[in-house]
C-alpha cells in the first residue's frame, strides 16, 4: 500500500490570533505552530494501512515555509518513510495549493492520497477535493471509517445527522475526520529513526491566486453578558429573559 499524505503547519488551536501589520495576514509573534490536527488522522491511517498490508510506502508532502520541515520531521518520527517540502514565495489560495500538489503527485505511484479534512488556519476545506478533481480521482471527504479490500474502498463520511457510505476504486483521495483512528505519538525510537529518513525541499513557483484576502479583522468582541443569578431559583428569571427575546 503506497500512500501520499499531505500535511500543513498551522497555529495551535489554543493560540490567540492577532491580525498582522499588513492587515491581511496574522501576526506570527508568540504563536505556537503544530501539524494540522486533522492531518494526524490522515497520517495515522496511512501508517496503519502500510502496517496491515505488510509492505508499502508512506510519503508526506507539505506546501509551506521552510519551518514546515518541523512537522515533516514529526511525520517521519510517527512512521512515514519519506518527506518532501514544496517551498514557494508568494501567496496562494486553495486552488494554487491543489495545483502544486497535483503536479507533484501526478507522476508518482500511489494507491491513496490522504489529507486532513480541513486545515484549521484558513478553514478552506477545499484542497483535497480539488486535487481529486485535477487528477481525475474519486474523493471521499470527512471520512470517519475506511475499509480497503484489494483495489476497492468503502468509506463512511460524516453528513448531517448520520454517515453516508461511499464506494470507489483506488487510487483515490480521502479527507480524514476526527474519529477515523487514534493517532500515535512519535516514539523515541521513531524520532531517532526519522533522522536517517529523507526530507527533501523542492523550490516551486505558485500559479496566480484567484481568491485574495483584501482585509482581515479580529471579530468584534461579544458584549459582556450578565449573571442572571445563582442556582435553580434564578431559572424563572432566565426563562423570562429568553422568552422576551422570543428564543423559546
Amino acid at each position: 500500500m503506497k500512500s501520499i499524505v499531505c500535511i500543513k503547519r498551522v497555529p495551535d488551536s489554543e493560540a490567540r490570533i492577532r491580525v498582522g501589520g499588513d492587515g491581511v495576514g496574522i501576526d506570527p509573534a508568540g504563536v505556537k505552530y503544530v501539524m494540522n490536527p486533522y492531518d494526524e488522522f490522515a497520517l495515522e491511517e496511512a501508517i496503519r494501512l502500510k502496517e496491515e498490508a505488510g509492505d508499502g510506502l508512506v510519503t508526506v508532502l507539505s506546501v509551506g515555509p521552510e519551518e514546515s520541515k518541523e512537522i515533516l520531521r514529526t511525520a517521519l518520527a510517527m512512521g512515514a518513510d519519506a518527506a518532501l517540502l514544496l517551498a514557494s514565495p508568494g501567496s496562494a489560495d486553495g486552488l494554487v495549493i491543489a495545483r502544486a500538489l497535483a503536479e507533484e503527485i501526478g507522476d508518482r505511484e500511489y494507491d491513496l492520497i490522504l489529507f486532513g479534512k480541513q486545515a484549521i488556519d484558513d478553514d478552506n476545506m477545499q484542497v483535497p477535493a480539488m486535487v481529486a478533481e485535477l487528477l481525475g480521482l474519486p474523493c471521499a471527504s470527512v471520512v470517519v471509517e475506511l475499509e480497503i479490500e484489494g483495489r476497492h474502498a468503502v468509506a463512511h463520511r460524516e453528513v448531517e445527522g448520520g454517515h453516508e457510505i461511499v464506494e470507489f476504486d483506488l487510487p483515490a483521495v480521502v479527507g480524514a475526520q476526527k474519529g477515523l483512528n487514534e493517532p500515535r505519538y512519535p516514539s523515541l525510537k521513531g524520532i531517532m529513526a526519522a533522522k536517517k529518513k529523507p526530507l527533501d525541499v523542492k523550490e516551486i513557483s505558485f500559479t496566480e491566486p484567484k481568491v485574495r484576502i483584501v482585509a482581515l479583522q479580529e471579530p468584534p468582541p461579544r458584549a459582556g453578558g450578565e449573571i442572571v443569578g445563582e442556582g435553580p431559583k434564578a431559572v424563572p428569571e432566565l426563562v423570562r429573559r429568553l422568552r422576551d427575546r422570543a428564543l423559546i
Binding site: P11, S13, R16, I17, V19, V24, I26, I120, D121, D122, D123, E208, P209, K210, V211, R212, I213, V214, A215, L216, Q217, E218, P219
Partner: peptide, 19 residues
C-alpha cells in the same frame, strides 16, 4: 466580495475574486 471566518472565527476575512 465575501466575508468568511478563518481560524474558526478568531479572524474574519474579506475576500475578492480575480475572475
Amino acid at each position: 466580495v465575501a466575508t468568511r471566518p478563518m481560524f474558526a472565527g478568531k479572524a474574519i476575512a474579506t475576500v475578492a475574486f480575480s475572475e
